[in-house]
Simulated scan of single mutants.
Amino acid sequence: MRSDALVAALDIGGTKIAGGLVDRAGTLLHEVQVPTPAKAEAAQVLGAVRAVLDLLVAHEGWRAVDRVGVGSAGPVDTVAGTVSPVNIPAWRDYPLVARMAAHPAVAVGRLRVVLGGDAVAMTAAEHWAGAARGFSHALCLVVSTGVGAGLVLHGEVHAGATGNAGHLGHITVDLDGDPCPCGSRGCLERVASGTAIAAWASGHGWRPEGDDTSAAAVAASARAGDPVALAAFDRAGRALAAGIAATATLVELEAAILGGGVLRAGELLLDPLRRHLRTYAALPFTRGIQILPAALGTRAGLVGAAALALRPIPAGEPELTPLRRDVP
């Protein structure tokens, strides 16, 4: 393995598809992105992925790329190489690894494509070079358009048999809650995501000053003292606290690391989360969990996709696409 070789990394979400070139030290050297046509047909979504790959191939650094890492909204199946993102309806059991391996630049270079869930990728990034570094048992959450999470157990990222371990956004925190696109109801994502915060605030009388009805606009109103906006963030923080406490009860966490766009609200979310956690994390071995903001920000998805691609192939696991041995 060349020390100067690069990883081509993709981060596929419901809002945007980002791509980047990452070195062996975890430094993001180049980044591009396009909007995700989330409601479009499957081929159009793939077209956006291929457009990102084309932009990366056009960069001079592509010549040093020796593998491709992909973090995708989930659920994913890392064994089959498929994805079924809740927020991209046309992709159900979609053979993303095979489609990416067929891209001319990937196929010609015989580059291995490694798939992981986007939250697992974020977890890998924060454990490699961010706020989870040094912790043996941690939960990393992405609070954005949806809510995703990943686990670090015994000092290693624990992805599970199909890459979905720690899928906290789709545990039920409200038994009588709203139906979720995943098929369940009352999911954490339906309470604590940016989409859910904005929808709940709008449904309870909050009105923005302009046309912006995003979670960021709710946060601006909360900073100005709007009681409905403050209640929306308190509700989200409470749901996150319940999810973190439940996870800590199962696996004895040292820390929970939170990233994603909603965390731009800062203490508007973190303060109620910590306050409610004192209630939900009541057992002695669940107390004292550190709640920390993620360190890598928007870089985490791409750095994490690269981290997943750099892991050794587990014994018995087939290479979904052959690893290129020579880098021009």
Rank of each mutant, 00 (worst) to 15 (best):
D326S: 13
R112D: 15
D93N: 15
L6T: 09
S144M: 04
R2T: 08
R223Y: 00
R275M: 01
D174M: 09
A246P: 01
G261I: 04
W128H: 08
T162N: 04
A5I: 02
G117I: 04
T249A: 11
L253W: 06
G205F: 11
L258K: 05
A38Y: 09
W91Y: 15
G146S: 13
G47S: 07
A129L: 11
V108K: 14
L273S: 05
P181N: 15
G288Q: 08
A256Q: 05
L141N: 01
L175D: 14
M100F: 06
G237L: 12
V34D: 11
R299Q: 15
W91T: 12
I291H: 03
L250R: 05
I257N: 05
G47M: 03
V152A: 05
A255C: 07
A217F: 00
G177M: 08
A5M: 11
A125M: 04
R133K: 07
V86K: 09
A42P: 13
T249L: 10
A8T: 09
I313S: 07
G146D: 12
G146Y: 13
R223C: 00
T78I: 12
D178G: 04
P293C: 09
V7H: 03
V79F: 00
V152I: 07
L292H: 05
E189F: 12
L56E: 02
G61C: 08
D77E: 03
H127V: 02
A307N: 10
A256G: 07
L250D: 06
V106F: 08
P95S: 10
L277T: 00
R264I: 00
A131D: 01
R207K: 13
T247L: 02
A196V: 06
T172Q: 11
V173D: 03
M100G: 07
A242S: 02
P312L: 07
V106N: 06
D226Q: 01
A98M: 11
P37D: 03
G117L: 07
T195P: 01
R24I: 10
R67K: 08
G194L: 04
H167C: 04
A239Q: 05
D212P: 01
V83W: 08
A198H: 09
A9Q: 06
S214Y: 01
D54Y: 00
D271I: 00
E60H: 08
G186V: 14
G259C: 12
L273C: 05
R185V: 02
A232D: 05
L320S: 15
A8I: 08
G14E: 12
G155Y: 13
R311D: 09
V22R: 12
Y280C: 11
L230A: 10
A129D: 09
A281K: 10
A216Q: 02
R287E: 11
Y280L: 13
T27I: 09
A198Y: 11
A48L: 09
R207S: 12
T15N: 10
G316R: 03
A107N: 10
L139N: 05
T279V: 15
L53F: 00
